[in-house]
């Protein structure tokens, strides 16, 4: 891999005595879809939380676009261009669908608390820009007809779409998707796969954690297999499907 956007170097995370991620080194190719797979508890979500600043690594480095981002807080990480979704959908249920996405425009607007209170004219313009960008995003995801419904009232499939739309609204360079297809039916899963490929075409690098192997093998450019916090294999989907270590890990030798 020549042109990597994210590099993990000897990354380690201990919880008390438990090693969740063990001296893992991995490079994520810019502009590609890379999937992290592995059995439950292999440390995939922990890796996501380390990359997005929700957890601090015990040792090792995380480099994003050449910068070490180890000690940054989640909101700073978001501001340098890493978006994410969560395994258990974390939308804002009481806010409307469009407001959810407008929250995603936070980093692309500037109003502070004082100006927000007095609402000067230039702020109305900014507000309008936020709204337009959010509407565009909704059309992109075919959610426009639900724009003013409370987000909590959407079916799960749409909630996951909304969460992705919201993460895209920050215009990330790298998007981390944590099991976007879990709980979705076959038709919704296909739509999700198409969406992820569309995101790639927008020149956003995608890092995916997913259990649906059909989806993973279908859309990924690269696959990395993790077990017990260690990298046991990486390569193209075809290479991974033929790798004996991987088969052993999955069958639980």
């Amino acid at each position: 891999m020549s042109n990597s956007i994210l590099e993990l170097e000897m990354l380690r995370k201990n919880f008390g005595g438990v090693v969740a991620v063990s001296d893992l080194s991995l490079q994520i190719e810019q502009g590609a879809i890379t999937s992290l797979i592995g059995p439950n508890g292999a440390g995939k979500t922990t890796i996501f939380n380390l990359v997005t600043g929700f957890l601090a690594p015990s040792s090792g480095h995380i480099k994003f676009a050449g910068r070490i981002v180890n000690k940054m807080k989640p909101h700073t990480i978001a501001s340098i261009g890493i978006g994410r979704t969560f395994q258990n959908v974390q939308i804002f249920p009481k806010m409307s669908v469009i407001e959810n996405i407008m929250v995603g425009r936070h980093l692309r607007s500037n109003a502070g608390i004082f100006y927000s209170c007095v609402l000067p004219p230039f702020l109305r313009k900014e507000e309008k820009r936020i709204q337009e960008a959010a509407e565009e995003q909704l059309h992109f995801l075919n959610l426009a007809q639900h724009a003013h419904a409370p987000a909590g009232s959407l079916p799960l499939g749409n909630q996951r779409m909304l969460e992705i739309a919201r993460a895209l609204a920050i215009e990330p360079k790298l998007l981390l998707l944590d099991e976007p297809a879990s709980g979705l039916n076959a038709r919704e899963t296909i739509a999700m796969g198409e969406l992820i490929e569309k995101i790639k075409q927008m020149n956003v690098t995608v890092l995916l954690v997913e259990h649906d192997m059909e989806l993973v093998m279908d859309i990924s450019d690269y696959v990395a297999v993790i077990n017990f916090g260690k990298l046991i294999a990486e390569g193209t989907p075809v290479e991974i499907q033929e790798n004996e270590d991987v088969i052993a890990a999955y069958l639980g030798e």
């Binding site: 978006g83 974390q90 500037n110 927000s116 702020l123």
Partner: peptide
Amino acid sequence: SRVGRGLQAIHGSEDAASSLG
């Protein structure tokens, strides 16, 4: 406003809010 939505987002989910910057 932008700030108000941010506050409501914090109420909804602190993790999600911080992941949006």
